[in-house]
Design a protein around this nucleic acid. Structure first.
Lengths: 282, 282
DNA sequence: AAATGTATGAAACTAAATTTCATGATGATC
DNA sequence: GATCATCATGAAATTTAGTTTCATACATTT
């Protein structure tokens, strides 16, 4: 905790009731303050606008604006983030919700290192590097990640598929070679279609890379390589939002790593496609 | 020099006279800015208040207030070079790359408040709330966001479409009603198909909500409602990765806000579908 | 030379921060 | 136990700051 927040904490006992409420609120969610107005803040902390201004003066800062600036400065230095997903219960305005989503998403991404195993990730890069075909399969909320991977790896020259239709995919499995890969994406690791497809593919000799939550699900147990997303606190309102961010980030990292190793080989084609995109804009 | 100041320096040539004066002044004395008002700054830099605000928008930040906050943040941590995309040149291990991606993605999400306008966001929530049909359209890297929105808003009971096929979509446009919405997703705001579809839809009376980078692109100018993503430093290797995260986060926030306002109405259907998903897992 | 477009600052407008002020609570003094 | 002083507090008024609009000027094109 930086000097400003520490100062707030230390001065809590000497503050008046309303100011104490303010102080506690600030300490709880300091990163939300800079984008708030006195009115919002007073409502959130259960005080009045005047008390907000008075609070700033009490902790030795002349105005609310300066307080915000100081806070940003402080928060910029210590990059600590909170991880509390409980806040959607209150009656929030659209912009509050937006701020919370921002927060939930960044927290989730930052939590990935706690679940993603380094060696598994390296194995995944290596395997994809030597693959020819990639099949991305995810249903429901995980379809987004599948589409994204499909797009990215196509850009790198892979023969990719990402299709919603289970039977369609099934019929392509027997043609997979030893080096080919199924990217099985499922948060729960229990989705039946994803499991069936993976098993079938393994029987035919392909590798299954799973992007799934870190727990002992069937997909987790059966996959050849496990890229685990952190289990984030769950609330039906938030649903799969943060999970999907973590799936995507893992795919991003995989993509860049493969890009890097393929490196010079794909650059000409990559730029060619890119220039064509720009040309077609006009 | 941090990413923000670098960005200002780099964009100097493309700025107008008044804006250039502003930029030079800011570069000369960046640490003075946060405690200045638009009026002071306009006098010091020999321009007008309006030009100050315009300058902020031109460098991709939605308001003068946000600009100040960003500047403070940057000045506070000029030691760390966080948005440095050159890492892909050195010999990074896969896991390093993963860590950088994590960082790039979280930074991008955290930058959204600098570009997303509060009021526009509220307008978007309101408009979607009163819509019946939603068409999500994005090509290339923006297709991911379109798919994601498609999935999310379908869960809320909207008649949604998200399709890659331009002609297919075209044929559905004439059936749009006054309250219907096109969500036009394009980072550059110049994608031809997206523009054409939006124009056609507007002619037919539907509203266009654009999710696009904050700059003076055609889509930005023509959209009815603009949800702007921040301009993040660009490197062809990273490509659209962080932009797509910001698009998705904006859609997440929109979804949750609409969910919240629809609230109780959709809960039964929502849970019904959800339980069925769980049942089908076994 | 007319027409179109772009840039600009003055002024109107809107939003946010700050101050003032009335009220009610607490506690000290007679 | 009544009276007065003090303090904390939030509602409302005021002031200040930020943003948008609009008319004008200037440049560019046809």
């Amino acid at each position: 905790m930086g000097p400003l927040l520490t100062r707030i904490k230390d001065s809590l006992p000497s503050l008046s009731e309303a100011e104490k409420k303010m102080g506690l609120y600030v300490l709880k969610q300091p990163e939300l303050i800079p984008n708030m107005t006195t009115k919002e803040l007073s409502q959130k902390s259960g005080t009045s606008e005047s008390s907000v201004v008075r609070f700033c003066k009490s902790i030795g800062i002349g105005s609310f604006k300066s307080f915000k600036l100081e806070l940003v400065k402080e928060l910029a230095m210590n990059e600590e983030k909170l991880t509390d997903f409980n806040f959607l219960q209150d009656k929030s305005e659209p912009y509050d919700i937006f701020q919370k989503v921002t927060h939930v998403n960044t927290s989730a991404i930052e939590a990935i290192p706690t679940s993603l195993d380094r060696k598994e990730f390296q194995k995944a890069v290596h395997t994809v590097n030597h693959a020819e075909r990639l099949i991305f399969y995810g249903v429901g909320g995980s379809a987004t990640a599948a589409v994204d991977g499909y797009y990215k790896f196509t850009k790198l020259g892979y023969a990719c598929t990402a299709h919603q239709d289970f039977h369609f995919l099934l019929s392509s499995i027997p043609y997979l070679k030893k080096n080919d890969v199924i990217m099985a994406i499922s948060m729960s690791g229990k989705t039946k279609d994803v499991l069936e497809l993976s098993r079938f593919a393994q029987k035919e000799g392909a590798s299954v890379i799973a992007i799934t939550n870190l727990d002992k699900s069937p997909l987790y147990k059966e996959a050849d390589i496990r890229l685990c997303t952190p289990i984030v606190e769950h609330d039906y309102r938030i649903g799969s939002i943060p999970s999907r961010m973590t799936q995507l980030t893992i795919i991003d990292a995989l993509y860049l790593s493969v890009f890097k190793t393929k490196g010079e080989d794909v650059l000409p084609q990559y730029h060619e496609a890119r220039n064509e995109v720009i040309r077609l804009r006009r």
